[in-house]
Nucleic acid binder design. Sequence first.
RNA 1: UCCUCGGUAGCUCAGCGGCAGAGCAAUCGGCUGUUAACCGAUGGGUCGUAGGUUCGAAUCCUACCCGGGGAGCCA
Length: 498
Amino acid sequence: MVYISNLSDHVDEEVTLKGWVYNYRSSGSLYFVEMRDGSGICQCVVAQDAVSEDAWEQTEALRQETSLEITGKVVEDERSIGGHELQVSDLNIYQVAEDYPITPKEHGVEFLMENRHLWLRSQKQWAAMRVRNEIIYAIHTFFQERGFVQMDAPIFTGNAAEGTTNLFETEYFDDQAYLTQSGQLYGEAMAMAHGLIYTFGPTFRAEKSKTRRHLTEFWMIEPEMAFYDLDMNMDLAEDFIKFIVKRVLDRRPKELEILERDTSKLQKTAEEGFPRISYTEAVEQLKSDDMAAMLDQMVADRKQEVEELKEEREEIEKERGQAKKWRKAQIDERVIEIGKRLDEIEENLRNIPDWRESALNFEWGQDFGGSDETLLTMKYDTPVLVHRFPAAIKAFYMKRDPENEKLALACDMLAPEGYGEIIGGSEREEDLETLRKRINEHGLDEDIFSWYMDLRQYGSVPHSGFGLGLERTVAWLCGLDHVRETIPFPRMMGRLTP
RNA sequence: UCCUCGGUAGCUCAGCGGCAGAGCAAUCGGCUGUUAACCGAUGGGUCGUAGGUUCGAAUCCUACCCGGGGAGCCA
């Protein structure tokens, strides 16, 4: 079979493509059919005098998403998307699609989510899924090339290790079971068997969060390494992200273009070292005069942008009266765009004082909020690694800093451009008695963790690991503003179908 | 759970107390180089639901339902 993605190997040949009508335009006895076949889009030109009467009749019956096969000669043409076009000699319809709901015009989120099964066919969604696939491939390549073994943690877990509030409950024969919220503890067991392992699987959180960064079902990659300390852990995490970003830049430029992704910051991520700051330094940064000045500057910049946008809107609205129809449409579109941006800025301006207050009044020992994370990443173009958090806000299994008992040897990686935490990791506590003490301090049931404590009983070693959120990574690399577009069928608060 | 914005034609929206509107989609017609093509015509409504105020409600009030964004929580 010939696919649109390799039409360049068939220039001047006659080929048959099988696919769907993405869009079409007609001009009397000439039809332009944008055909997609899953691998790309190609414009096919049907001239009435170049095809049989039957083929012409079928051409006139075409509707958006009609499935068909088209035969024609491949020619290079700059006017066409993809640089090639097909001069059609024959055409056969599989099925005429009546009233396809998603038109080439704009649609709202709710409607698109209801039609997610069809929305996946649209260009940007198609491109995002290709990038997702490239990221997944890069993840496996990175670990496999370094001798890591992929192993799977269970999805059903019998005991709610750290409380049930954010776990999904389900029935397991006559028992209660929960859906996993992390494979990490199992990862540690597997690392003690194979040295270097990673898990790649779904994770479930029953958090009632309705934000652009949350799903109830998402995919997490969790490497776990025997004999790795925190620094080695952070080195690996940095190399890992660089590798993924490079791969996507190298191999998916076309998709990034469809997504209208500005890749300049991704380029820097692929090339430059990531800053590493301790939690304590991060707190100082938040409370600093620099931060306050940056926020003031931000307010000033936004206010100026508002003025500029309003001016532009006034000007084009004046022009609208005597504009031609297509220009009117263009103006209307721009006015809507400006309106959206103004709403966004308005919300920003409302929020900045809160952000400022939250940052300036931040007290050592608290966990960072969403706005604090955004502020911390704002002055860098690459991700930032924050390490050595107060132990009190971190999980029981994290090793304490030998130089300061109050600190846990944890690290978070914050993505730039407001995408937030993409990685969370730590060096694990390897001493049996210390671990037992922590379990009790956290009010957890020791019995549940007996197998986990066995890992410290039999040949305990220093070890570390981290977890990467796949959907947040996809959102960041694609420049999408919501994780719901990074997975084929997102599961989130109030969304279980399709 | 809380804060905030919204629900009007298949879709995106305007109308905000006095006749239910536009663009796109659909249907019919025109056009041999279109790029969300264009031009002309036609059909299309439980104004989220229930109650209330009013001579009169899409518009004002109350409750509820659904959705967006955010807080908390988190990857």
